[in-house]
Amino acid sequence: MTVSLPLVFVLGIVAWAAIKFLGIRLWVAVVIALFGFWLSQTFLAPAIESGTRSGVDIVNGNHD
């Protein structure tokens, strides 16, 4: 069974859980999100995308 959820929705739930249960402050979550957007515009973006796709494939059970 494959469930399709937008990545922003999943990250929003993770951020909410971190703020609610781990006691992370809201401004720290915002800084981490902004750093992620900045990082996506650097030379590391292809490696991040490849790692993310590999992780999703493993979770979905599509490993070859």
Rank of each mutant, 00 (worst) to 15 (best):
M1S: 03
M1T: 04
M1P: 00
T2N: 10
T2L: 12
T2S: 11
T2V: 12
V3S: 06
V3Q: 02
S4Y: 14
P6M: 03
P6R: 03
L7W: 00
L7C: 13
L7H: 11
L7E: 09
V8M: 12
V8S: 14
V10D: 11
V10C: 15
V10L: 15
V10F: 08
V10N: 09
L11A: 14
L11N: 12
G12T: 03
G12M: 00
I13Y: 12
I13Q: 14
V14F: 04
V14A: 13
A15I: 04
A15M: 01
W16A: 15
W16Q: 08
W16S: 12
W16C: 07
W16H: 08
A17C: 13
A17Y: 10
A17G: 11
A18E: 07
A18Q: 07
A18W: 00
A18D: 07
A18L: 12
I19V: 05
K20F: 00
K20V: 04
F21E: 01
F21R: 00
F21T: 01
F21A: 05
L22E: 07
L22K: 08
G23D: 02
G23S: 02
I24Y: 08
I24A: 14
R25G: 02
L26S: 08
L26W: 04
W27F: 07
V28I: 15
V28D: 11
V28P: 03
A29E: 08
A29C: 08
A29L: 00
V31H: 02
V31D: 06
V31F: 01
I32L: 02
I32W: 03
A33K: 01
A33E: 08
F35W: 06
F35I: 12
F35Y: 06
G36C: 12
G36Y: 00
F37Q: 14
W38Y: 03
W38F: 06
W38H: 06
W38P: 01
W38L: 09
L39E: 11
L39W: 10
L39A: 13
L39R: 11
L39V: 13
L39P: 01
Q41M: 11
Q41N: 13
Q41L: 12
T42K: 07
T42L: 10
T42P: 10
F43Q: 13
F43C: 02
F43K: 09
F43W: 08
L44N: 00
L44F: 05
A45P: 01
A45R: 02
P46M: 01
P46R: 04
A47N: 11
A47Y: 14
I48D: 10
I48M: 15
I48R: 02
E49F: 15
E49N: 13
E49K: 13
S50G: 13
S50M: 12
S50T: 09
S50Y: 04
S50V: 06
G51D: 11
G51A: 10
G51R: 11
G51Y: 09
T52G: 15
T52M: 14
T52S: 08
T52V: 13
R53I: 07
S54Q: 03
S54V: 05
S54A: 06
G55P: 12
G55T: 09
V56P: 07
V56A: 14
D57F: 05
D57L: 02
D57K: 05
D57V: 04
I58N: 06
V59L: 15
V59H: 11
V59T: 08
N60Y: 01
N60G: 06
N60S: 08
G61A: 05
G61Q: 08
G61W: 04
G61V: 02
N62I: 04
H63N: 00
H63S: 07
H63Q: 06
H63D: 03
D64T: 02
D64P: 04
